[in-house]
Amino acid sequence: PPQTPIRAAMTSIQLLRGDLTSSGDQPSTVLATYFKNCTVDPTQDVLKRLETLGQVFSQRFGQAVGPRCVVYGRQRFALGVRLYYKVMEAMLKSEEKRLSVQNFSKLLNDSTFHKSLLACALEVVMSTYGESSFKNGGYNHGGGDPAETNVCFPWILDVFSLAAFDFYKVIESFIKAEPTLSKDIVKHLETCENLIMERIAWRTGSPLFELLKQEHESGAAEQVEPPAS
């Protein structure tokens, strides 16, 4: 029989938490090895960044949802960190297989990569809890429970001062690396992608414009694809 929305949400939350029980809140041995294999070990930067972003996230969550909800913000962040480590490890294993390399120093020392990945993990967690939802006009902040729309995507981008263009880069790899994501969550991330592609990435100040300018100046823009493709 079809589940009620409450039952469906509770099931999703149980599945997410169950999935992440075996994932630690610290880098696993495998992930720590990837960090140590880097030309510059990113471990300390990763941990420091998580501490800072955790405080920022919890405070902003409390501001958006209610001061008594800062504790829930910390819970969401803790789950997000577990998912972040889990997906990062899966991504690196996949890249190691694809590229036959074990030193991912440039990637793992890129703070934008880490912020994007963490933001995606948190978006998954908040979507699972129903806090980030495009139903009831979430993105346009129209209708529905005000608390549910206040942390709806792209709220997380503002919290982390993250460009939508950079967040977009991790979405597909995230979905590939975490096959246990539910249909609803994948749909949610796909909607985030579409929003970015159609609107947010084209806002003033997006890094996309500078990249397009660089591509144009390098002559790459001459290779134009026919409209059919």
Partner: peptide, 21 residues
């Protein structure tokens, strides 16, 4: 995978997207 369209080619991955050739 739930009708999601995977656009990255076999030679493309997170390393290329973050300019880590």
């Amino acid at each position: 995978s739930h009708d999601y369209h995977f656009g990255l080619e076999d030679h493309e991955g997170i390393s290329e997207l973050f300019d880590c050739d």
